[in-house]
């Protein structure tokens, strides 16, 4: 599903350069449930961004679903993101003037699905998240856990191959963390390759593989 070969990434500023990823080799199978752990500055977010085609890399190869993801135009990148990848973020990143249903439906808008149809599908997904009653509420009327469930619904509505979650529980209390992790686990059971960046051991422990990153290199891969 995902294959990285000697991926390097350096950030340049005017005076200095920062070699963030120093040759990452990684293989993730379809349906895997993986977490990435590491201290801040270790390069784990950069790795996730490259996996999510949100950022490009300097050297190496990245194959996603047997397609080489390299030097893509913005339009192509957008199309791949829309088709293959669902994102979940720490701060939810919901659009605050759209209600829950419209937020969930947004990826389908970019797939040119009619408003009526995409809203109906969005309601279905919200129902699966147990948020049907909150469909017409704005994000700021919802709790953190609810917002993250809306974000998860949005991430999976276009039926992506992989789900990338960047600290999905970072802004949640332990109770809701538990709920969200259970949800992510259930989603993984349906066959979505799930990759979670986290620094919470409890969260990492729920995944099947934990990839430890330090100083831009994979230190070890721990199998739970």
């Amino acid at each position: 599903m995902i294959t990285l070969r000697d991926v390097n990434k350096t950030y340049y500023t005017e005076a200095t350069s920062l070699h963030v990823l120093k040759g990452i080799d990684l293989h993730i199978e379809q349906g895997d449930y993986v977490s990435i752990m590491g201290a801040s500055g270790s390069g784990k977010s950069t790795l996730l961004n490259i996996l999510g085609i949100l950022d490009n890399y300097d050297t190496g190869d990245y194959y996603l679903n047997n397609k080489l993801i390299k030097d893509l135009s913005e339009t192509q990148a957008a199309a791949y993101r829309n088709e293959m990848i669902g994102f979940v973020f720490q701060s939810f990143n919901l659009i605050n003037f759209k209600n829950a249903m419209e937020n969930v439906a947004l990826p389908l808008y970019y797939k040119n699905i009619s408003r009526k149809k995409r809203n109906a599908i969005a309601l279905e997904y919200l129902d699966r998240m147990g948020l049907k009653d909150w469909a017409y509420h704005l994000p700021n009327e919802m709790s953190g856990g609810q917002k993250q469930r809306v974000a998860i619904a949005r991430a999976i509505i276009s039926q992506p191959k992989i789900l990338l979650a960047d600290e999905p529980t970072g802004a949640l209390d332990s109770q809701t963390t538990e709920e969200v992790m259970q949800l992510l686990g259930e989603l993984n059971q349906t066959g979505i390759t799930t990759i979670i960046v986290t620094h919470e051991k409890a969260v990492a422990d729920e995944t099947r593989k934990v990839i430890h990153i330090k100083d831009g290199l994979i230190q070890n891969i721990q199998h739970n």
């Binding site: 999510g52 949100l54 913005e74 957008a78 993101r81 990143n93 919901l94 659009i95 947004l106 970019y110």
Partner: peptide
């Protein structure tokens, strides 16, 4: 910026 970023992450092309 954030809204546009989100839209881009969700598959909006620069042209859109």
């Amino acid at each position: 910026t954030k809204e546009i970023g989100i839209r881009r992450a969700l598959g909006a092309t620069p042209r859109t």
